[in-house]
């Protein structure tokens, strides 16, 4: 058993667990996108960032790939973490503005503007499809090509691969292919319509559990605290 500290509380993890698995076990919510149970952790979307260590040496790591270590001090919801996550969402939004998953994330984290030029590539290169194809479907039909800003996911020579059985696993798992919510302001790039709705939580939520990721913003818990 490995003993760590998460958001100030002592937690125990089994040998071989990641920080993300440990957090999930204790019910601490960490947003993920390129992570999927049943597929190897990849660490591409950087949403599951957490802060480890203390003082000037504290830094952010992706919890899906970072192993649980004895004595590790983890914070899942600091300002630093949320700020970085917001920027990641803004970056993803700028290349796949029509993805429902990303739109929802934007709403959840209060990302209300997008300051980059929209590229509309509909792919955020999270690699879920690549891993799905190789690990679950034993396919190896698609993969990453090129590098840096020219990186893409495709079949060899961009034509139908002999390995592909048209199983559809890649499409099933893709977070960017799904149509976005057709809410009140569907036509704008950042809708955020759900942010204006009344908060659903009426119970007291502390920093650990607040689903808004920004404790106190909706005002609900602040009221609770006062009374």
């Amino acid at each position: 058993m490995i003993t760590m500290k998460m958001n100030g509380m002592e937690v125990k993890a089994e040998e071989g667990w990641t920080v993300l698995e440990t957090a999930k076990f204790y019910g601490l919510e960490i947003p993920t996108l390129c992570h999927h149970e049943g597929l190897t952790p990849y660490g591409a979307c950087r949403l599951c960032l957490v802060e480890i260590g203390e003082g000037p040496k504290a830094r952010l790591v992706s919890s899906c790939t970072y192993p649980a270590e004895e004595g590790l001090v983890v914070h899942t919801d600091t300002r630093r973490v949320v700020q970085a996550r917001r920027m990641m969402i803004e970056l993803m939004l700028s290349v796949a503005p029509n993805s429902r998953v990303i739109q929802d994330l934007a709403s959840k984290f209060g990302v209300t503007r997008m300051r980059f030029k929209i590229r509309n590539e509909e792919c955020i290169l999270c690699g879920l499809c690549v891993r799905m194809c190789a690990e679950q479907m034993d396919g190896k039909a698609i993969g990453f090509q090129n590098r840096g800003y020219q990186r893409k996911i495709s079949t060899p020579f961009d034509i139908r691969s002999e390995e592909c059985r048209l199983c559809g696993g890649c499409m099933y798992i893709c977070p960017a292919c799904q149509l976005r919510c057709q809410g009140p302001q569907a036509e704008t790039a950042i809708c955020n319509a759900c942010l204006t709705m009344d908060p659903t939580c009426l119970d007291f939520y502390d920093e650990l559990q607040c689903w808004m990721y920004d404790a106190g913003r909706c005002g609900t818990c602040v009221r609770e605290k006062k009374s």
């Binding site: 990849y42 660490g43 591409a44 979307c45 950087r46 970085a84 920027m87 990641m88 970056l91 993803m92 700028s94 290349v95 980059f116 030029k117 955020i124 290169l125 690699g127 990453f144 090129n146 590098r147 840096g148 800003y149 020219q150 990186r151």
Partner: peptide
């Protein structure tokens, strides 16, 4: 240089360097 030499895995580095360049 960096947007081309980044491996392209992390969105922060791939998109980050590309958007900064832009």
């Amino acid at each position: 240089f960096l947007r081309d030499e980044s491996c392209g895995k992390c969105i922060s580095c791939r998109e980050g360097t590309h958007r900064m360049w832009e």
